[in-house]
Design a protein around this nucleic acid. Structure first.
Length: 679
DNA sequence: AGCTTTCAACTTTTT
DNA sequence: GTTGAAAGCT
């Protein structure tokens, strides 16, 4: 089981009985360590439910459980406590929350709810102001401050107000018996601190606690972990101070500093061997991060060869930059034969930078996905409606047929559909085509047949009307009438757990309808601005949508280029990476009204480091000579981080022995051409 | 007063 | 290329 691990990894896995900090450099196999350690702990006799593995996101938790399943089997993996900090908090509060005066069925407010309460508590309708308070209050709560303490640290007038609002906000939550996301950490901490019995119980519950992405923990999470493990439970924290990029939402690397102080027996194990990137890429990464003050010494190395040099390209503007990135992708593919689109990622500091790249990729017919914010078209309610639209456009779209015929439920179930599907398979027709076939009567009950026919007629009728309807108002009326006819709003309310969620989904639907209607009215928003075009029929618009959908669907988990912010790219890797917009002001980011503190700059530098270390084999860094700001074009200054990579100081200048090694490596990789032939 | 139009500015994101 | 805020218009 452990033969695939290197010595440092092994050491981390085998350190079972005391506190352990694994400093996992980028690409050093940290998840493998965690999963193997879980396996080891099981071997030593711990029950699966005694092992807690804590992550930050549900996605990471699911992934971790998945990886564990492969190693320890489905049964054990199911019982492991793999959860986010927040869901662990919920678990604790649901079990013992009554001990700190929480009602059994307390409700959890999402950030929209919170905004509502804040507007109320602060007596304003100004959403922006309320959001400012929300932000400040959340940060304070993440630092473990209450309203009174917050008032003491509040700097300006604005923060003073926020602190006052916080006081009232907390009172309201109490009255409502509601908690916000931050309370899901704070209240369990309060419970375990104050209640000896509860503390004893939860400390006994776990025989080992593992924390992933430890550098992202905030002060309250630190305390919660501390009280949860008490003085006896061994724990393993895994993290990388150099990849701490969430300071702006309360994460603090103080938690890394404090660990050795609070746990003198702490075993610190650096994982420095990188299994991801070439030497050239790692060297650039090491140079950049060396500019930051170090908490722990750590230097990545790898057994991979030097590889291709990191390229810096100076571009003449955003468009030019995007074109060059596209050209790079095309060139690499032309050259490499089997290089997939999914081998490429374009990373940037801020979301809005994606736009130009999307434009150029589309123009070049390259499929892509924008990671992070899930596409509007990914939401279930939109997918439902799109299924109908697709069916109108193309009656033979079987997946769309299946979705449309069952949403909302119309008394056509699996039996009927199975029969229909078999029939259509037999006669090699689409489901829709089969529906009106006379032979179908032989295999279906009259009632089921009737239902299918009704559905078919509805689709035909709608298609007919959609073909003839143009103009925004008529289109809107048609779509709303149709939604009413199929009872979609009701369907949402019947199927959604909370009324609120159903309402939110319905409002998405209305947005979607509005969007279609505007297009029907001849309004077209596209690159280059809003155009007046000819009025289109609903069906024509549906056709365009179908195309977009199929593009998006192809992009789902298939062979597509990734566009992502640096933050959202953490933990991921690609063979070929382009870091875009590496300019002063953008990366490091600087907004006009705040000054750049050293801490801020260091976090920006870590962001650059995260970006560089996403790349496996090639890395291109592009910087803008001129860039757009608002309407005008201003001169672009290359980011200081480019110089910090010290690319010109290749291996040769640093260490003559390296040069020799490199030469040997090249010779080994590329045998000299036989005499008489062209190389 | 309420609506429309124009102008400007533009982080990062999870629970 | 969107969104929000301010100014101007009905």
């Amino acid at each position: 089981m452990t033969e695939t691990l290197n010595p440092a990894q092994l050491q981390a896995v085998h350190h079972l009985h005391g506190p352990c900090l694994v400093l996992a450099g980028a690409g050093s196999g940290k998840t493998r360590v965690i999963v193997h350690k879980i396996g080891k702990l099981l071997q030593t006799g711990l029950e699966p439910r005694q092992i807690a593995a804590i992550t930050f996101t549900n996605k990471a938790a699911a992934e971790m459980r998945d990886r564990a399943k492969a190693l320890v089997g489905a049964r054990a993996a199911r019982e492991l406590v793999v959860s986010t900090f927040h869901s662990l908090g919920v678990r604790i509060l649901r079990a013992d929350g009554t001990r700190i005066g929480l009602k059994e069925n307390f409700s959890i407010l999402d950030s929209d709810d919170v905004l509502g309460v804040l507007r109320d508590a602060g007596g304003t309708t100004d959403a922006k102001l309320a959001r400012g308070w929300q932000w400040a209050i959340s940060l304070w709560k993440n630092q473990g401050l209450n309203a009174a303490q917050a008032a003491a640290v509040a700097h300006d007038e604005l923060e003073q107000t926020a602190a006052r609002v916080m006081q009232r906000y907390e009172e309201r939550l109490n009255a409502y018996q509601a908690v916000d996301f931050d309370d899901l950490i704070g209240l369990p901490l309060k419970l375990l601190t104050r209640d000896d019995e509860a503390r004893a119980k939860w400390q006994a519950a776990f025989g080992h606690v593992l924390v992933d992405e430890y550098q992202d923990t905030n002060a309250v999470q630190y305390e919660l972990l501390k009280v949860l493990v008490g003085s006896h439970t061994p724990f393993t924290t895994v993290g990388d101070d150099d990849q701490s990029i969430y300071g702006w939402r309360g994460a603090t690397i103080d938690n890394l500093k404090r660990l050795p102080q609070d746990y003198p027996r702490l075993k610190v194990i650096p994982l420095e061997q990188n299994y991801r990137s070439t030497g050239a890429i790692l060297r650039a990464a090491n140079h950049v991060i060396a500019k930051n003050p170090k908490l722990f010494e750590k230097k990545l190395w790898s057994e991979f060869g030097e590889g291709e040099p990191v390229q810096v390209s100076e571009c003449d503007g955003e468009e030019h930059e995007a074109e060059r990135a596209v050209a790079r992708i095309q060139a690499q593919r032309a050259r490499g034969g089997a290089v997939k689109f999914s081998d490429f990622a374009i990373l940037y500091r801020a979301n809005h930078q994606a736009r130009v790249f999307e434009q150029k990729l589309r123009a070049a017919q390259i499929p892509y996905k924008v990671s992070g914010g899930q596409s509007f078209f990914d939401r279930t309610e939109i997918k439902d409606l799109c299924a109908w639209l697709r069916l109108l456009v193309n009656n033979d779209d079987d997946p769309a047929f299946l979705r449309a015929v069952t949403t909302p439920k119309r008394g056509i179930g699996t039996t009927t559909l199975a029969a229909l599907s078999e029939y259509s398979g037999q006669w090699k027709t689409s489901l829709f085509e089969a529906l009106f076939s006379p032979g179908l009567a032989a295999v279906l009950k009259p009632k089921a047949l009737q239902g299918l026919h009704d559905f078919g007629r509805e689709v035909n009728d709608l298609e007919h009307r959609a073909r003839q309807t143009t103009g925004a108002d008529d289109a809107r009326a048609l779509l709303l009438g149709w939604l009413k006819a199929i009872g979609y709003e009701q369907h949402l309310h019947d199927n959604e757990e909370s009324e609120k969620l159903a309402t939110a989904r319905w409002s998405n639907v209305l947005d979607f309808v509005d969007w279609i209607a505007r297009r029907c009215g001849g309004e077209l928003t596209q690159e280059g601005g809003t155009f007046e075009t000819e009025r289109q029929s609903v069906l024509q618009v549906a056709q365009t949508i179908s195309v977009i959908i199929s593009l998006a669907e192809r992009g789902d988990e298939q062979d597509v280029v990734t566009l992502s912010t640096l933050h959202a790219a953490k933990g991921l890797e690609w063979p070929h990476v382009v870091l875009a917009g590496v300019n002063e002001g953008l990366l490091p980011f600087k907004s006009q009204d705040d000054e750049m503190t050293p801490e801020r700059l260091e976090e920006e530098r870590r962001l650059m480091y995260v970006g560089i270390t996403r790349a496996r084999t090639t890395l291109a860094v592009s910087t803008l000579r001129r860039r757009k700001r608002g309407r005008e074009t201003v001169a672009g200054v290359p980011s200081r981080f480019i110089a910090e990579m010290r690319l010109s100081e290749g291996v040769t200048k640093e260490d003559p022995r390296e040069r020799l090694r490199l030469l040997r490596e090249r010779l080994a990789a590329k045998p000299p051409a036989p005499v008489g032939q062209d190389a």
